[in-house]
């Protein structure tokens, strides 16, 4: 019986190793051929030109900008929702709200993308100008997509704060509001940071929804109302027809993305460790 569990565990480890080996084996030679500085910091991505140019700096900035935008939209709304759910929500409403938030997590990203394309793109276009496919639109959409993660994780962090802190603050004459914002939230801060980091991880790795609203121009970010291409979008859009060095450069983009995710996960791990000490 034990061997069955062991096999299952080994399959998991084997999968992650296989992915790493594949990515690095194909990506690193390409990076070498292009030259690491040119690859990472080159501002021109023109795989079809002669000579071709493979700079993914615009896509790195693209991924970072929509992720930051998502955090900007998603974290305040998510955090306040979590506070509401833990401290203000009447029982009847909670029974509706909680499953609704969970459902938000289960919606396929292509459906989000469709919603973005049909609702958000025209909304941004009419309100702010431009053609609507922009950093702003992608940020709003990703902000919505990270909500369930941010809400779920910060709500449990808030609920994990001992009641005695709440009572202690009230006994000093503090209002409910002051207690929540000056005692409970600081006490839950490491859990809330964890929520933010997980949200970042979700946003930076998102592909389908972003492609549908971001414009996908492979150029340096030119303003929040202008289009952008993320690393994930870069891979998906060109993988179908890429060959040789072009293909290698896309796989190398995946390597960089993986490193980003790795960095985020290490941060998450450190935060979690700090929280349990």
């Amino acid at each position: 019986m034990k061997n069955i569990f062991l096999t299952a565990a080994l399959v998991t480890i084997f999968a992650i190793m296989l992915i790493c080996v594949f990515l690095f084996a194909n990506g690193i030679p390409a990076m070498k051929e292009i030259g690491l500085p040119e690859f990472l910091l080159g501002t021109d991505w023109s795989p079809g030109d002669v000579p071709a140019s493979f700079g993914i700096y615009p896509m790195i900035l693209g991924s970072i900008s929509v992720t930051l935008g998502a955090v900007l939209f998603g974290v305040p709304i998510g955090l306040l929702t979590a506070v509401f759910m833990a401290y203000y929500c009447p029982n009847g409403l909670y029974k509706v709200l909680k499953p609704a938030v969970e459902l938000l997590a289960g919606i396929p990203s292509v459906v989000y993308g469709f919603f973005g394309l049909m609702i958000l793109v025209p909304f941004v276009r009419n309100l702010f100008g431009g053609n609507g496919n922009s950093i702003l639109t992608a940020s709003i959409l990703l902000g919505i997509m990270i909500l369930p993660t941010v809400i779920g994780v910060s709500e449990s962090a808030i609920r994990a704060v001992p009641d005695q802190y709440y009572e202690g603050s009230l006994a000093l004459g503090a209002t409910h509001e002051r207690t929540v914002f000056f005692t409970i939230l600081p006490a839950a801060s490491s859990g809330i940071f964890t929520a933010v980091v997980l949200g970042i991880g979700r946003a930076i790795g998102e592909t389908m929804a972003v492609i549908m609203v971001a414009g996908n121009q492979a150029r340096m970010p030119a303003g929040i109302l202008k289009g952008i291409r993320t690393m994930t979008a870069n891979i998906v859009l060109e993988m179908g027809y890429a060959a040789d060095l072009h293909r290698g450069a896309l796989i190398a983009t995946g390597v960089i993305l993986l490193l980003f995710i790795l960095f985020i996960n290490i941060t998450f791990y450190l935060l979690k460790r700090r929280a349990t000490i």
């Binding site: 005695q164 802190y165 009572e167 006994a171 000093l172």
Partner: peptide, 16 residues
């Protein structure tokens, strides 16, 4: 009222 009537609890409940 709670400002005028302070309270010390059974277990120390200092904030973190």
């Amino acid at each position: 009222l709670r400002k005028r009537v302070g309270m010390v609890f059974q277990k120390p409940n200092l904030f973190p």
